[in-house]
Design a protein around this nucleic acid. Structure first.
Lengths: 285, 285
DNA sequence: GCAAATTTGTTCGTATGTATT
DNA sequence: CAATACATACGAACAAATTTG
């Protein structure tokens, strides 16, 4: 009984949830009922519930009650490119067909195009001088009406000057920008590098994705730099920053020869992964 | 002033932190001082600080004070395989050299080997019947003494029976298990598929990684299924489950031809990524 | 459509415990 | 051992959101 009361209560409720005694979507007893059940004050009960909320196990709805969290059906994005289109990672038309294959309704906003002088984080990745003009194209993606990702792609203005004027149009580029640049400028993408990290959402991101404003749902940030051939090795010509809420997204990376179909459902993945480290922490080195 | 007081106070402190007025590691005023500064009760101040804690912006140390969070230097793992060894994703020796290249001291526990009948989450991925014997090898990895990842790999017992008896030894397999299987059984890995998701840590994982016990730091779960050639397409022969705390890990995926060196530091990555969606949320579709 | 009842949210005061210096 | 700072716990009152009658 070394643990404080609110943690004991939280643990007790947690066990009930994880054992399935309290199923997803089910309502917990009210704070008053729990107060009486556990013989604690309402504030202590609230501390216990706050803990469960922070763990993502329950959510409270003012005027209604406290409910066991219902997991959203995650969507799976394949990060490795289709070798023909050079796409992948939720880009352009490739993302759309991947979504549609799974019986969902994808939608993307019209791109918002801007010409701006490159900030450091863009300039570094495109290996151009800070302040050089770049075209940025911003887009949001939805699946079945739920906001799924935010995306910003930057191209050196030089590509427009050389004839790729459609980059400035606030319209989707049919077949994708990579194919367009190849057609128009003979610019071939020879590879790309993705960089992944997880962080808590900015306030804007939390608002846009309708995430709880206390940062308990992380976002996954994906930065893709695409390269064309150059005399001294690959040269970057495009950088895309994507943001995905971590509670509704999974990612797949295929290397070499792998089966076309995934072996297991996205929803399984979540529960399976928890079993792995069961006794690991206690194990000595 | 629609917002409750504790949120206003939290926002004010948040602005100070994000503007740099309060730098990493710096101590905030004590609860009593903040109470006087803002003219609120101590409990309200504590609510504000709890919010900042949940956002990962500050951490409190009993008896000492509240401090702006110091970010750990993230470590970067390359997920795509070295085509020669077929490794990648923090596996075996490949992981070690990647760590050492960056001037860190890697260490891995001796593998803990078990023979067990395959649970569903292993059997599905190896396409074997549930209950079939599998060899599991568990390992923990450290970088400069900090626990960095937990890993469990499962092989069908059939591989041991066919002669790969070293899989049962509680020792590292020099050159990696993939090379060993190739040497011993002529079993060539032709590809692998990674599956990534982010979730809150289990209690064991939080303990092992010394993460705060309220689940505010997520873990990234990586499931890698490796394939060999078969008459009807790729056949899985190995599945690895890895868990990485999201606050100290980044990942890189190379596709096609890309520069050897990364364009930017791991620590930049974090801050850069936040700038991207600045005005995105407010923008109409 | 409105009022009452229910449920969670916010804020305060107070007392005492625990960790660190 | 004393002082300081955060942690736990209780009680109370009122506010805000939602459902119900």
């Amino acid at each position: 009984m070394a643990e404080p009361m609110y943690k004991e209560i939280a643990q007790d409720l947690r066990d009930q949830i994880e054992s399935g005694a309290l199923g997803p979507g089910q309502q917990l007893p009210t704070e008053i009922e729990l107060r009486d059940q556990y013989g604690a004050s309402r504030n202590t009960i609230r501390d216990a519930i706050k803990r469960l909320t922070s763990l993502g196990l329950v959510e409270t709805r003012p005027g209604q009650g406290t409910f066991v969290t219902q997991r959203m059906e995650p969507f799976v994005t394949t990060l490795t490119a289709d070798t023909e289109t050079g796409l992948g990672g939720g880009e352009g038309d490739a993302a759309f067909s991947e979504v549609e294959e799974r019986g969902k309704k994808p939608r993307a906003s019209k791109p918002r195009v801007e010409v701006q002088s490159a900030a450091a984080y863009i300039a570094t990745r495109l290996r151009i001088a800070e302040g050089t003009d770049v075209v940025t194209r911003r887009q949001e993606r939805y699946i079945d009406g739920t906001p799924w990702s935010l995306q910003l792609t930057a191209y050196p203005m030089e590509l427009v000057e050389r004839g790729a004027s459609d980059l400035l149009k606030a319209q989707d580029i049919p077949g994708g920008a990579v194919a367009y640049l190849n057609r128009t400028l003979g610019l071939a993408q020879i590879g790309h590098r993705d960089r992944i990290l997880v962080r808590s959402p900015s306030q804007d991101e939390a608002l846009y994705f309708k995430l709880p404003d206390d940062g308990r749902v992380s976002v996954l940030s994906l930065v893709r730099t695409a390269y064309r051939a150059g005399p001294d090795g690959p040269v970057p010509f495009r950088v895309t920053f994507s943001v995905f809420p971590a509670d509704r997204n999974q990612f797949v990376i295929n290397t070499g020869d792998v089966p076309k179909e995934l072996a297991e459902a996205a929803s399984d993945q979540y529960f399976d992964a928890r079993n792995v480290t069961k006794d690991n922490a206690t194990g000595a080195e």
